[in-house]
Simulated assay, not measured.
Amino acid sequence: MRSSFPQEGRRQFATAADTQAFGEELGAALEAGDLVILDGPLGAGKTTLTQGIARGMGVKGRVTSPTFVIAREHRSLGEGPALVHVDAYRLLDDFGAGSGDPLGDLDALDLDTELEDAVVVAEWGGGLLAQLSDAYLFVGLDREPENRTETGADTREITWRWVNAGN
């Protein structure tokens, strides 16, 4: 990830458009080989954030939840890396239970892009952190932040931190 994006932080967003704008900012900072783990409850905005990441990366194709296909690949419209959008819950459920190697199982999905040449964004990835990579960006999405603003019930809080498990 480019150093222009903070290594950790916390922000609140009142609308889906705000969440996508933050994702766009994040996506512009991501580089090939980056792994982003999105963790949060159903409806917290994981796919909405990924839509913004895709815009920031300049990839093609409509970004939707990968729930039924396990992984979607979105190629770059320019020279940048592809985006591989993964439903890690399904990956673990369908593939990882047998091999114990979710990243290897993802690679076995016969994607057109080598994973080290792409940015991988994994929804529901919280339980796979140690298995996927030693270094990753962990993004937590919370539908009910402790310090909710008075502007409405749809406020989301996003926290992020770069994790280097090898150190």
Rank of each mutant, 00 (worst) to 15 (best):
S3G: 14
F5D: 06
P6Y: 15
Q7G: 15
Q7V: 15
G9K: 04
G9N: 12
R11E: 14
Q12A: 14
Q12D: 15
F13N: 05
A14R: 12
A16Q: 13
A17G: 07
D18A: 07
T19K: 01
Q20S: 07
E24F: 12
E25Q: 10
A28L: 09
A28F: 08
A32M: 10
D34N: 08
L35F: 15
L35V: 08
I37S: 05
D39C: 12
G40D: 10
P41Q: 12
K46H: 12
K46D: 14
T47H: 10
T48L: 05
L49I: 06
T50I: 08
A54T: 11
G58E: 01
V59F: 00
K60Q: 06
T64W: 11
T67S: 13
F68N: 12
F68T: 09
A71Q: 03
E73W: 11
R75Q: 15
P81T: 04
A82N: 04
A82G: 05
L83S: 08
A88Q: 01
A88N: 02
Y89P: 07
D94E: 11
G96D: 04
G100A: 03
L106E: 00
D107P: 07
A108T: 07
L109I: 00
T113K: 04
E114R: 06
L115V: 02
L115D: 00
V119G: 01
A122D: 07
A122K: 03
G126K: 04
L128S: 03
Q131M: 00
Q131S: 04
Q131E: 03
Q131Y: 12
S133R: 04
S133I: 00
D134K: 04
A135F: 03
A135P: 08
L137D: 00
V139G: 02
D142Q: 07
R143S: 12
E144N: 11
P145G: 11
T149W: 07
E150M: 05
A153R: 12
D154K: 04
E157M: 07
E157N: 05
I158V: 13
T159G: 14
W160C: 08
A165F: 14
G166F: 15
G166Q: 15
G166A: 15
N167W: 11
